[in-house]
Amino acid sequence: MITTPHWQDADTFYEQLLDAQAGLSPDQLQAFSARLVLLLANQVGDAAVLAECIQAAREAA
């Protein structure tokens, strides 16, 4: 799992993320976030890395 900054263009990504969420209801935002997580997880693909990411996110909560 990569924990150091690994962005090609963080500002553009953040802007795209905010634009995609604009105007969504709380339910739509939750569904959007779930779909995005699944799409990104599919890009990672490695079950061990995904498990580490889940654990790290949980610990940060």
Score class of each variant (00 low, 15 high):
Met1Leu: 06
Met1Cys: 04
Pro5Val: 06
Trp7Tyr: 07
Gln8His: 14
Gln8Thr: 14
Asp9Cys: 04
Ala10Tyr: 13
Asp11Ser: 10
Asp11Gln: 15
Thr12Gln: 02
Phe13His: 05
Phe13Thr: 06
Phe13Ala: 11
Glu15Gly: 11
Glu15Thr: 15
Gln16Asn: 14
Leu17Trp: 03
Leu17Glu: 01
Leu18Val: 13
Leu18His: 12
Asp19Gly: 08
Asp19Pro: 00
Asp19Ala: 12
Asp19Ser: 13
Ala20Val: 01
Ala20Gly: 06
Gly23Cys: 06
Gly23Ser: 10
Leu24Cys: 08
Ser25Met: 06
Pro26Val: 03
Pro26Met: 05
Pro26His: 02
Gln30Tyr: 03
Gln30Asn: 12
Ala31Asp: 12
Phe32Asp: 03
Phe32Asn: 09
Phe32Val: 00
Ser33Asp: 08
Ala34Thr: 11
Ala34Trp: 08
Arg35Val: 04
Arg35Ala: 08
Arg35Gln: 14
Leu36Lys: 12
Val37Glu: 13
Val37Phe: 10
Leu38Met: 04
Leu38Lys: 10
Leu39His: 10
Ala41Val: 01
Gln43Thr: 08
Asp46Ala: 09
Ala47Gly: 04
Ala48Glu: 07
Val49Pro: 00
Val49Arg: 12
Val49Gly: 00
Leu50Val: 06
Leu50Ala: 04
Glu52Met: 01
Cys53Gln: 09
Cys53Asn: 12
Gln55Tyr: 00
Gln55Arg: 13
Ala56Arg: 11
Ala56Glu: 05
Ala56Gln: 10
Ala60Met: 07
Ala60Cys: 00
Ala60Leu: 05
